[in-house]
């Protein structure tokens, strides 16, 4: 239904804006997502209770923690979900106040969230959806090069070992759990964010898929990109090796360490950690 015309033929827009120059002259310490003393409530109930975290570009941070500790809440607050009320603290991305921006602006500024439960969009094909998302990043009046777009998308799908038929299917509709997760990573690969939050992307993936998806994520690791990986399983971290591991419990980071912390958690669970730590 979309018209395939491109006003600027032969202009490889996709790769163009993806490799936008980063403002290197800025203070390098601000090249990160900084969460300071964040407090978040929903329906008057506090879920995040004074959380601090710095995710610099070029690093992979993992967050682990018991069910209901607030990990997905953090992810959605980062992405700008309006149901959650930020009652205190601040979040900046590369020095800019993230909280005053709408969700779509945050996305266009380079923030990506791979959802724990991706939503379905009936009647909208995957290809059209991703195209619309890329189109939204172009200046007004400029149109995405359709040929370059499909070329890139097919390449990314091949890397993720996704069947081409997924381009023509409605977004996530009738996808299996694992297919939905893989589709999140496809979108990430196409949108090439500066910061990506992966919320339990590994749950629902079979062993082979886990390897493929991890490979996809690792291929995107770069000094220009930061990852926040939320997971329950050490296994994922065997493939996507984190620089730092944080433990979240009852709305706070209660322990941070290197990748060995994840191994320890795998062995001992969360009970030995106490909030005082």
């Amino acid at each position: 239904m979309q018209c395939l015309r491109s006003r600027k033929r032969g202009h490889p827009i996709i790769t163009d804006f993806l490799n936008q120059p980063t403002p290197d002259d800025l203070n390098p310490t601000t090249m990160s997502i900084d969460i300071r003393d964040l407090k978040v409530s929903i329906d008057g109930q506090e879920i995040i209770k004074g959380l601090n975290l710095t995710l610099p570009k070029g690093e992979v941070h993992a967050i682990m923690g018991p069910n209901g500790s607030g990990k997905s809440t953090l992810a959605k607050v980062l992405a700008g979900h309006e149901d959650y009320e930020v009652t205190g603290g601040s979040i900046t991305m590369d020095g800019e106040d993230l909280l005053e921006k709408e969700a779509d602006e945050r996305s266009r500024d380079g923030l990506f969230l791979a959802f724990q439960y991706p939503h379905e969009i009936p009647g909208v094909t995957n290809a059209n959806f991703i195209r619309a998302a890329l189109q939204a990043r172009l200046p007004k009046g400029e149109e995405l090069d359709a040929v370059a777009f499909y070329k890139e998308m097919y390449a990314q799908m091949d890397a993720l070992e996704m069947d081409r038929k997924f381009t023509g299917r409605s977004v996530n509709e009738g996808f299996s759990g694992g297919e939905k997760k893989r589709n999140e990573i496809l979108q990430m690969a196409m949108l090439k964010p500066t910061y990506a939050v992966l919320d339990e992307t590994d749950s629902g993936l079979d062993i082979d898929a886990l390897k493929i998806v991890s490979k996809g994520v690792n291929a995107m690791r770069s000094p220009e990109r930061g990852f926040l990986v939320i997971t329950h399983y050490q296994r994922l971290l065997d493939y996507i090796v984190p620089d730092h591991v944080h433990v979240m419990k009852d709305g706070k980071i209660i322990r941070s360490g290197d990748k060995t912390l994840a191994l320890e958690l795998e062995e001992r669970g969360y009970d030995w950690l106490n909030d005082a730590a």
């Binding site: 990506f112 009936p122 939204a136």
Partner: peptide, 26 residues
Amino acid sequence: DQIFYMKQRGLSEAEAMSLSVNGFVN
């Protein structure tokens, strides 16, 4: 939540709405 999902991908609220509606009548 469907609108939020689309906004997270960079679509404005209006764009997300029209995409949903177009999907519905597609």
